[in-house]
Amino acid sequence: MGSVRTNRYSIVSSEEDGMKLATMAVANGFGNGKSKVHTRQQCRSRFVKKDGHCNVQFINVGEKGQRYLADIFTTCVDIRWRWMLVIFCLAFVLSWLFFGCVFWLIALLHGDLDTDYKDDDDKSKVSKACVSEVNSFTAAFLFSIETQTTIGYGFRCVTDECPIAVFMVVFQSIVGCIIDAFIIGAVMAKMAKPKKRNETLVFSHNAVIAMRDGKLCLMWRVGNLRKSHLVEAHVRAQLLKSRITSEGEYIPLDQIDINVGFDSGIDRIFLVSPITIVHEIDEDSPLYDLSKQDIDNADFEIVVILEGMVEATAMTTQCRSSYLANEILWGHRYEPVLFEEKHYYKVDYSRFHKTYEVPNTPLCSARDLAEKKYILSNANSFCYENEVALTSKEEEEDSENGVPESTSTDSPPGIDLHNQASVPLEPRPLRRESEIGSRR
């Protein structure tokens, strides 16, 4: 089982795998120059863009038009607004034209077009017409509009002379109601789609790998820009990579689940303020055997998904993003964004995407760390350097704002901070800030 798991979770494809794949392509008759073999020097295209759209195009789909027309309502909801407006206008105009032609044909076959009612006051002739005051196609078209929109100006009306005319008036009224219901329903469904809710759900630009509770963890940050909550919010993550099976089958995008606390339930989050999602790199993680150097040379993509129900409509929305291997910062942490004021908490989104480097973060893999092949620094050293990194950030910001350097908390000259780390230190809580992250 261990060997199978290692093969499945191998992220960085070796040169031997690339040569094996190329040999397979030639042997199977696919070596026509169009096949692409992804190596370390040639990274694959992003499968999920940063804005959440999937970078996929469908080609050679059989009976595409028929399949889309069979699900016309979903098609109308998914198309762009400009095409929705075109369909909206065409549906009414074509129905008016169709029934206008029908009423014109009825008048033509009944002989109503030969009668001039402007110079004739004989009401008996008017009563013999199928539709009064309809003696041309324009008049028939206007009567069709008046019937379907129930305008009723009063000059044109159907008589009991022709039952077919009466039937067409009733039929057009029913068709008009159906068109109204369909168009209004599609427009309302399109307006109520929770897709735009994703514009106020954000992911951090970069993911980070750092120590948390004595273990290497992959972390990324999510935030909600609205005050309205995302009900039943939960997160998922998958690692996408290519691999070759033991039988020699090439899988271009193998999807591997990344555990973010599904078993323990901590994948469900209360997204009021930005939260750091934590994936513990343990023996079940696809990143277990990867060191910093392996991450730098790897070719994979981590897709992160945030799902929840919109509070206003109770409709489920899904926000997506992805991180390539070069977008994962090893040995970094996110800057705090949640600050405790006197009577409330304040979230500073200008710090949302910012990170700071944490010294002495192990550069080895989580496996080597678990097997004690890498000796961690003293816990006080880690905490102290973590505090120094934050303090230096604040000093830089104070210097930019014009604060005198004498007010900063610099260490005395001639003292090495790293050498001082081995000395037991008193706890130094942050002056006014605390970061709330997901705790395992």
Rank of each mutant, 00 (worst) to 15 (best):
G2Q: 07
S3W: 02
V4L: 09
R5C: 08
T6F: 05
R8Q: 04
I11E: 15
V12H: 12
V12C: 15
E15S: 06
E16P: 06
G18F: 06
G18R: 07
M19K: 07
L21I: 07
L21R: 10
L21A: 09
T23A: 10
T23H: 10
T23R: 07
V26N: 12
N28E: 15
G31D: 13
N32E: 15
S35D: 15
H38Y: 05
T39S: 11
Q41T: 12
R46A: 02
F47N: 02
V48R: 01
K49S: 07
K49M: 06
K50A: 07
G52H: 02
C54S: 13
Q57H: 08
Q57N: 13
F58H: 11
I59E: 14
V61G: 15
E63F: 07
Y68C: 14
Y68V: 10
Y68N: 11
D71Q: 15
T74L: 07
C76W: 10
I79Q: 05
W81C: 03
R82M: 15
M84W: 15
L85F: 07
I87L: 13
C89R: 01
L90H: 14
A91Q: 13
A91V: 04
F99Q: 00
G100Q: 01
C101P: 00
C101E: 03
V102N: 03
F103Q: 07
I106V: 05
A107C: 12
H110L: 01
D112R: 01
D112I: 00
T115C: 04
Y117H: 01
D120S: 01
D121S: 14
D121L: 15
D122I: 01
A129I: 04
V131M: 14
S132P: 03
S132L: 06
V134H: 01
N135R: 07
N135A: 12
N135V: 07
S136D: 11
F137S: 02
L142D: 02
S144M: 00
S144T: 03
E146M: 04
T149A: 09
T149E: 05
Y153G: 15
G154A: 03
G154S: 04
F155C: 04
F155Y: 05
R156V: 02
C157D: 03
P163R: 03
A165R: 02
M168E: 00
M168Y: 03
V169T: 06
V169M: 11
V169A: 04
V170S: 01
V170K: 01
F171M: 06
S173N: 06
S173W: 09
I178N: 03
A181M: 15
F182E: 03
I183R: 02
I183M: 10
I183S: 13
M191Q: 04
P194F: 04
R197H: 11
E199T: 10
T200E: 13
V202C: 11
N206I: 05
N206S: 07
A207N: 01
V208Q: 02
I209F: 00
I209V: 12
M211R: 02
R212F: 05
G214Y: 03
M219G: 01
V222T: 02
N224T: 12
R226D: 11
S228P: 04
L230W: 08
E232T: 14
E232W: 12
H234R: 12
Q238E: 11
L239F: 12
L239M: 07
L240D: 00
L240G: 00
S242E: 12
R243S: 06
R243G: 10
T245I: 04
T245Y: 10
G248Q: 14
L253Q: 14
L253S: 13
L253W: 12
I256K: 07
I256S: 09
G265V: 10
G265T: 14
I266T: 08
V272D: 14
P274D: 12
I275R: 06
E280L: 11
I281H: 00
E283Y: 03
L287H: 00
Y288Q: 00
S291G: 09
K292E: 05
D294P: 00
D296Y: 07
D296C: 05
D296E: 05
N297D: 09
E301Q: 03
I302P: 01
I305E: 10
I305D: 06
G308T: 10
M309W: 14
E311H: 11
E311Q: 08
A312M: 08
A312N: 06
A312Q: 11
T313G: 11
T316K: 06
T317R: 13
C319L: 09
C319D: 10
A325C: 07
A325D: 02
N326P: 05
N326F: 03
L329G: 00
W330E: 00
W330V: 00
W330P: 01
G331P: 00
G331Y: 01
Y334K: 00
E335V: 05
P336R: 08
V337R: 00
L338D: 03
F339Y: 14
Y344H: 09
S350H: 06
F352Y: 03
H353R: 01
H353G: 06
V358W: 06
V358T: 06
V358C: 08
S365L: 00
A366D: 01
A366T: 01
A370H: 07
A370D: 08
E371Q: 05
K373P: 10
L376F: 06
S377C: 09
A379P: 10
A379C: 09
S381N: 09
N386I: 03
V388A: 14
V388T: 15
T391C: 10
S392T: 12
S392H: 13
S392I: 05
K393G: 15
E394H: 10
E394Y: 06
E400I: 07
G402C: 09
P404I: 11
T407K: 12
T407E: 12
S408K: 12
P412L: 09
G414H: 11
G414E: 14
I415R: 06
D416M: 06
H418Q: 13
S422T: 09
V423G: 15
P427A: 14
R428D: 15
R428G: 13
P429R: 12
L430G: 12
R431N: 15
R432D: 14
